[in-house]
């Protein structure tokens, strides 16, 4: 399972970095979204991968999963969500004002 999660994070990050380096705003926004997915998965995995164990104290539990990364991921998701919404609005505004979705704002032939 560790190898699978690691590969998923790697592929998401690689795709995100590639898209962020594109010249138009829509792929850049998609790339930022992919990057934030990768980061969230990564943060989550930093509490170690545990299946079927509770994060809070329970009488019947034999093992626990680390609750802190889950709280961190929740915070990161909320922040990432807000930032993505903002950057989409900003990209739309830039497109409306500049008449082009190129990140340099220059019309290309």
């Amino acid at each position: 399972m560790e190898a699978l999660v690691a590969m998923v994070i790697g592929v998401l990050t690689a795709g995100g970095v590639y898209l962020v380096l594109r010249a138009r705003t829509f792929p850049v926004v998609l790339g930022l979204t992919l990057l934030s997915y990768a980061v969230n998965l990564f943060l989550f995995a930093m509490g170690r991968l545990v299946i079927g164990a509770p994060p809070v104290v329970a009488e019947t539990a034999h093992a626990y999963t680390d609750p802190l990364p889950q709280a961190l991921v929740l915070t990161a998701i909320v922040i990432g969500f807000g930032m993505t919404a903002f950057v989409i609005m900003l990209a739309l505004k830039a497109y409306a004002e500049l008449g082009d979705d190129h990140v340099d704002g220059e019309r290309r032939p």
């Binding site: 995100g16 962020v20 705003t25 850049v28 930022l32 990057l35 934030s36 990768a38 980061v39 990564f42 943060l43 990161a76 922040i79 930032m83 903002f86 950057v87 900003l90 990209a91 505004k93 830039a94 004002e97 500049l98 990140v103 340099d104 704002g105």
Partner: peptide, 19 residues
């Protein structure tokens, strides 16, 4: 707006690295 878009994208990428 154009300068702002770049500023926001750079900082969002930076935030990912921070995390």
């Amino acid at each position: 707006v154009q300068a702002g878009l770049r500023y926001v994208v750079v900082n969002l990428a930076g935030s990912s690295l921070f995390l």
